[in-house]
């Protein structure tokens, strides 16, 4: 089967820092692929390049067999490529329901329709039910706990019916119960056919959830394979322990 996402020789420099240094990787459909690597190895930058938040200096990205290099984030989102942020980004002054509604990728004509139509409420209601956020539907996002905000951001990108979701550290700064919740929802959506690419520092989380695991070091892939092999790979050990 063809790869869902393919990154070829992507490069991004900030001044003298080569944040992403000719990175290549492949995400197969229906996997939960992990992207790990030491701090500053370029994971977030790579996410930004793939999802259209930053233009790459060079290299190529293709998604579902089509070249998407340099496409803008909004159109990629509409085409089923969505992501969340390391620091959860939700709209604090909008309610939880509104945060979900605004993420549905509306057409021009729908802009003039009701802010929250009946069908919005139904759709959002189902999602809130699934994520057990129903009781906070009318609260402002600013009133949620950090973990709830991460969950909300995750739920929101589901409004566009994505085929690939890229999560940047979904469990960072989140309590253990919420980590389990997050895992549960990822598994459910994975079972429903969504592919995941997850940046994560929590190794036990990665080990029990992800396969394969890709390791990034100094802006390039140094390993890709089954989770069991990661821990014994000398290159990986070197990247984490060495230099």
């Amino acid at each position: 089967m063809a790869a869902l996402l393919e990154v070829q020789n992507l490069v991004k420099t900030f001044g003298t820092v080569r944040a992403v240094d000719s990175a290549s990787l492949v995400v197969e459909p229906n996997t939960i692929t992990a992207l790990i690597g030491p701090n500053g190895s370029g994971k977030t930058t790579l996410f930004n390049l793939i999802t259209g938040y930053l233009p790459p200096d060079s290299g190529r990205v293709s998604f579902r067999g089509r070249d998407i290099t340099g496409s803008d984030a909004g159109s990629l989102y509409r085409r089923g490529l969505s992501r969340t942020f390391q620091q959860a980004r939700v709209f604090p002054a909008l309610t939880v329901q509104e945060n979900l509604t605004v993420a549905a990728g509306y057409s021009w004509g729908q802009l003039f329709g009701r802010r929250l139509s009946r069908s919005d409420r139904e759709r959002v209601g189902e999602l809130l039910e699934e994520f057990r956020l129903g009781h906070v539907a009318d609260l402002f996002a600013s009133e949620l706990s950090y973990g709830q905000r991460k969950l909300l951001e995750f739920a929101a990108v589901l409004m566009s019916s994505p085929s690939l979701i890229m999560l940047d550290e979904p469990t960072a700064g989140v309590n253990p119960v919420m980590i389990e919740t997050m895992e549960h929802h990822i598994r459910q959506r994975h079972a429903a056919g969504i592919t995941f690419l997850i940046v994560e520092h929590d190794m036990t989380f990665v080990m029990r959830l992800c396969n394969p695991v890709i390791v990034l070091d100094q802006g390039r892939e140094i390993f890709a394979g089954a989770p069991a092999e990661v821990q014994n790979n000398p290159l990986v050990l070197d990247a984490y322990l060495g230099s």
């Binding site: 999802t51 980004r89 002054a93 909008l94 605004v102």
Partner: peptide, 22 residues
Amino acid sequence: SKLGLSLAAVRADEDKARGIGV
């Protein structure tokens, strides 16, 4: 309307808004 909802998203975090198809 959704126009107001979209504008509120733009006001709060324009890049994020663009990224979710607003």
